[in-house]
């Protein structure tokens, strides 16, 4: 019985991250990388996995040290924890995926200031047990990755006719170069958010 309820809780937390509070599509936080790295599916996937890695590690550490946190120094502790894991992630990418690291450039270190990560540290990890924090990180990171992939798929297919490098559009398709430029990112995300607001039929589009 006990196990059953905790299973339910974890499923709820995961679903919460994937849809109900999807960071990029519903809460509109951590918006810079979704716009910048979604010119192709591969960079978007790399970015998504990096965010999952950093978020899980930082949630784990913050949750472990939560009895020792003091209110006035907690933000700086969170930031330093996050910066440490981002450094690790950056070095790993440079070592194993140098080409991809080149493409992402400064957007990898910019994960430090991705509001999503500090938001989860503050809202979840600093008050929840370790396992729950890690699962929350996986859910939130997963939701973020899914959002990146949707955006990247739309943009890459329309801009080059390929998906992750494979030709998917007929040869006659004229590449729509504007999708690769900043315009494409802003407008696609705007329309996607509009679609979501329409589908969920709520008046939630009041974030501005």
């Amino acid at each position: 019985m006990q196990d059953n309820t905790s299973d339910n809780l974890y499923t709820k937390v995961i679903l919460n991250g994937l849809w109900r509070q999807n960071p990029a599509l519903r809460l509109l936080i951590g918006m810079c990388p979704p716009l910048a790295v979604t010119t192709g599916v591969r960079p978007a996937l790399t970015m998504g996995l990096s965010v999952i890695f950093v978020l899980s590690c930082s949630n784990l550490v913050v949750s472990l040290i939560r009895p020792f946190l003091r209110p006035h120094v907690r933000i700086i502790v969170f930031t330093i924890t996050i910066a440490t894991f981002v450094t690790i992630c950056d070095l790993l990418l440079k070592a194993y995926l140098p080409a991809m690291s080149e493409v992402l450039g400064p957007y990898v270190p910019l994960i430090i200031v991705n509001c999503l990560i500090i938001f989860r540290a503050e809202a979840c990890a600093s008050k929840s047990p370790v396992l729950l924090s890690v699962i929350d990180a996986l859910g939130m990171g997963g939701g973020f990755t899914v959002a990146l992939l949707i955006l990247a798929s739309i943009r890459e297919v329309l801009a080059t006719g390929c998906w992750a490098g494979w030709q998917v559009m007929p040869k006659a398709f004229v590449p729509w170069l504007a999708m690769q430029m900043p315009v494409g990112a802003f407008v696609t995300l705007g329309l996607l958010l509009g679609l979501i607001a329409m589908v969920s039929g709520s008046k939630e589009a009041r974030h501005g």
Binding site: A178, V183, G184, F186, V187, G190, A197, M198, A205
Partner: peptide, 18 residues
């Protein structure tokens, strides 16, 4: 209605970027 708030702001930003 569904474009109010953030979506229309992003689309405007897109036009500005253009």
């Amino acid at each position: 209605r569904s474009l109010r708030g953030a979506p229309i702001t992003l689309i405007t930003a897109g036009l500005l970027a253009l």
